[in-house]
């Protein structure tokens, strides 16, 4: 039996302000199986980041349940097996990249020697070998994204959550990211990410979910979408057909 890495059941999130109430997610339910690469798609304002925040317990669903490897998302144990790369990579300007990653490693209870080994090897892969002792305030956007990915992978997570991972990366870095994600899948890891880069999603995802205005319209295997040649020539066309107004 395949273990469920991520499970959302009837999740609803409502933002309440002084003069407004907005239902950001409405009865969202889906599952991501272990070893799957799941692409979470939707137009701007659909609720993708809200969903990710709910999974990470940064916001609290008003209804429904979220479980990560069977552990409720509200518990600390849920976050021990995940790695998260935010959309906007911002880190403490007064730390060097190595210090930042070592701090996160300490929080994740990774022994220092092992943490240094992982950090060095990751820096080697992405070309940041010389930047380990540079303060974060001197990093470019692309370098920041790489560090962001490094901190997400630090604990060798079973579930990797990426929010718009390709933003800010040059084509070479994107290719590296794609290879990395496929490598993780081969290791049995699960990847859940949101993206606007449908061409990238088409290349690597097993399944996609399409969100619009807080409602999950469809979840489908990418293979099946692309096999429907009479209707869709690409994931992009499929996506546009799903989200167009009725």
């Amino acid at each position: 039996m395949v273990e469920t890495a991520l499970s959302l059941t009837g999740v609803g999130v409502t933002y309440k302000g002084k003069n407004y109430t907005k239902e950001a997610l409405f009865e969202l339910s889906f599952k991501v199986e272990r070893g799957e690469i799941f692409g979470f798609l939707g137009p701007n304002g659909a609720g993708k980041t809200t969903t990710i925040k709910a999974i990470l317990n940064l916001i609290y669903p008003n209804t429904g349940q979220i479980e990560i490897f069977g552990c409720p998302a509200s518990k600390v144990c849920a976050r021990k097996r995940i790695g998260y790369m935010p959309e906007i990579a911002n880190y403490y300007w007064y730390l060097t990249a190595k210090e930042l990653l070592l701090m996160y490693a300490g929080i994740l209870n990774i022994p220092k020697a092992l943490a240094l080994k992982r950090i060095d090897s990751f820096f080697e892969i992405v070309g940041l070998q010389d930047a380990g002792n540079v303060l974060m305030k001197n990093f470019s956007k692309g370098m920041m994204q790489k560090v962001s990915l490094a901190q997400a992978l630090l604990n060798d997570p079973d579930l990797l959550i990426l929010d718009e991972p390709a933003g800010g990366l040059d084509p070479v870095a994107r290719t590296q990211l794609r290879s990395l994600i496929l490598e993780l899948k081969n290791k049995g890891k699960t990847v859940f990410f949101s993206s606007h880069e449908l061409s990238e999603v088409e290349l690597i995802c097993d399944r996609v979910g399409i969100l619009k205005e807080g409602r999950l319209l469809k979840t489908e295997k990418v293979k099946d979408i692309l096999n429907q040649k009479t209707q869709h020539q690409s994931l992009e066309n499929y996506f546009l057909n799903i989200i167009k107004p009725e």
Binding site: L56, V76, K80, P86, N90, L108, Q151
Partner: peptide
């Protein structure tokens, strides 16, 4: 404000 809280609270930090 700087959103540095996201990667921190995404770790097992209460």
């Amino acid at each position: 404000q700087n959103k540095t809280i996201y990667p921190l609270l995404a770790k097992p930090v209460t």
